[in-house]
Design a binder for these strands. Structure first.
Lengths: 136, 136
DNA sequence: CGGTTGGTTCCCGTGACTGGAAGCCCTATA
DNA sequence: TATAGGGCTTCCAGTCACGGGAACCAACCG
């Protein structure tokens, strides 16, 4: 099938599929007219990539996952190890974002939000000691 | 003071400070020798920028915040409105990341992680119906 | 006077695409 | 059969927020 159908069936934009080929993630065959030609299993792999990307794996991590996907002799422990690292990354990122959110919420709550110029958000952004203060 | 001192006192790399000047965020004066020359209030603004960036504001949002910072006649409601939008963005992002994390954790838990090739993580990544299933 | 450090500008690279231009290929319709 | 359209191709540029590094000038130290 042409790239348009593969795009539709995988949910990935054609541009992205060509990009993945360019970086050697997934190379399709070519028809006589020069068009890219995708098989059903290519579409499966594209879907695999889409889902892995949407779960926060980087393209390089997807490259590893895809090779594990393609290798039917792999050990599930290898996959699990990769996923657990990613899970820990996500937890770190979540923690960081939560702290950030709490600091910002603290700033928002402390601001009157009226027509006066005094603004504790601005003051808080200017004063880095507030950051540590919020953490406690 | 030179850019090195401004960098040290603000905590921003010199590269970043030059970049901010290039995009018109904060323009410093120049000494006779052509070096950039920073005042104490420039350093305050740089610190303000650093903190705003670290709280998840984009450079364009920082541009707005900085103009509010510079404008002593502003109304605190304007600042609060901007901060609240950002807070809502952060909440959205957190929610999305949490779902993502839970899906991944589910996949990790369901995998035996042994030497066999059967791997429910790989299966889960290949099968998008699992995603909806995890949400419920 | 030479060496080191710290400024300057400029350009390239990052990650993961997205948009757009120029041109080929295929099909449907007048 | 001519042509209009849509889909496909490649290539180039832009995104965001810088970071690395080259080539060159300025300041300072011994």
């Amino acid at each position: 099938m042409n790239i348009g159908s593969a795009s539709e069936r995988s949910g990935l934009p054609a541009k992205t599929i060509r990009y993945y080929e360019e970086i050697g993630l997934l190379t399709a065959g070519r028809s006589n007219n020069g068009y890219r030609d995708y098989s059903a299993s290519d579409v499966s792999r594209l879907r695999f990539l889409k889902r892995s990307r949407s779960l926060g794996f980087s393209v390089e991590e997807c490259r590893q996952l895809l090779s594990l996907y393609n290798d039917t002799d792999r050990q599930s422990a290898d996959v699990k190890a990769l996923a657990m690292v990613k899970l820990a990354d996500l937890d770190d990122k979540l923690k960081e974002l939560m702290e950030l959110r709490n600091t910002l919420q603290h700033l928002v709550h402390s601001c009157n939000g009226d027509s006066r110029s005094e603004c504790s958000i601005i003051d808080g952004l200017a004063d880095e000691t507030l950051h540590a203060g919020v953490k406690n």
